[in-house]
Design a binder for these strands. Structure first.
Lengths: 155, 155
DNA sequence: TTGAATGCAAATAATTTGCACGGAT
DNA sequence: ATCCGTGCAAATTATTTGCATTCAA
């Protein structure tokens, strides 16, 4: 019994439950958008999501895409990232995944994710964060590092 | 004489010279835009620059502002920063100034610059940069850290 | 059933572009 | 004098919004 209880407790909350927790409906558009992020992965623009939905024969209006990207942002499921190309991009914040940086090629625009962070890096950023909180009086929830340079092909 | 020579050599290159070096004309619009950044400082949007110019009675069309922000970007005088508010911002890269981070309030949108970086921080970032260069084959020219949280008034 | 979500098209907002004219070299 | 740079207005691109209809709860 106890084991059963623990297992249930540790099961990941379904998207349906997450929506319900926020008093939002688990509509098919929303499920489809989440599916795109789960399948296609990183940093998609609204248009990217829209195109992927079309490719999957799911008819979701572009306005609905925008509205739901914003909702998922406010629910803390997505975060916004920006690569200076004139449009916002979104990516899923996975519970298990660590924060990652982005490496942007200033010539061709290619973006590479850098997932692996060393223990040392992690500690350093926590330290920097604490220091900034004290110095500026902010409460810091998250951070994001962008590196700019030339990718192997462009250098 | 020697001292005089050294002084001349160390004098900052005038904007006029910088433009000439890039085979660009040192027009009054361009000078006025640089003046705004020198006077008003950090992270201005195209519209911000345009408004500051109007306030200074300099008539420069918004298209010219956009064209020159892009030029100054390519010349390495400005860099683009983005705070997720739907518009690009630009700020001057001063030779003397170190890289600085930005602290963004996710509630009111306020942006605070964090200029001071400790020796330790500087070294760490160089280290991280070297590591990424090796791991990804990029040549990294610059980086930018954004911190997100709540400002003193919003928390 | 019933209000929240959606699709569509129209409205905004940000940025870019075409072209005739003006100004820096 | 010669082009580069500019202003203006029109064109594009990204995103938001109004409203009648649809659908999850």
């Amino acid at each position: 019994m106890i084991i059963f209880f623990i297992e249930v407790k540790d099961l990941p909350e379904s998207w349906k439950d997450v929506f319900h927790r926020f008093n939002k409906k688990a509509t098919s558009s929303r499920r489809a958008i989440l599916e795109v992020f789960e399948e296609k992965g990183q940093h998609l623009s609204a248009e990217d999501v829209y195109e992927h939905l079309r490719a999957k024969k799911k008819k979701v209006g572009i306005a609905t895409v925008y509205r739901n990207l914003d909702l998922l942002l406010r629910m803390g499921i997505l975060r916004k990232v920006n690569f200076g190309d004139g449009r916002e991009h979104y990516e899923m914040i996975r519970r298990a995944a660590r924060f990652h940086h982005h490496l942007i090629c200033t010539r061709c625009g290619q973006v590479v994710d850098c997932e692996e962070m060393t223990q040392e890096e992690e500690e350093f950023l926590q330290h920097l964060r604490k220091e900034l909180e004290q110095r500026q009086g902010f409460v810091i929830h998250s951070y994001h590092i962008y590196f700019y340079g030339l990718c192997p092909r462009c250098r």
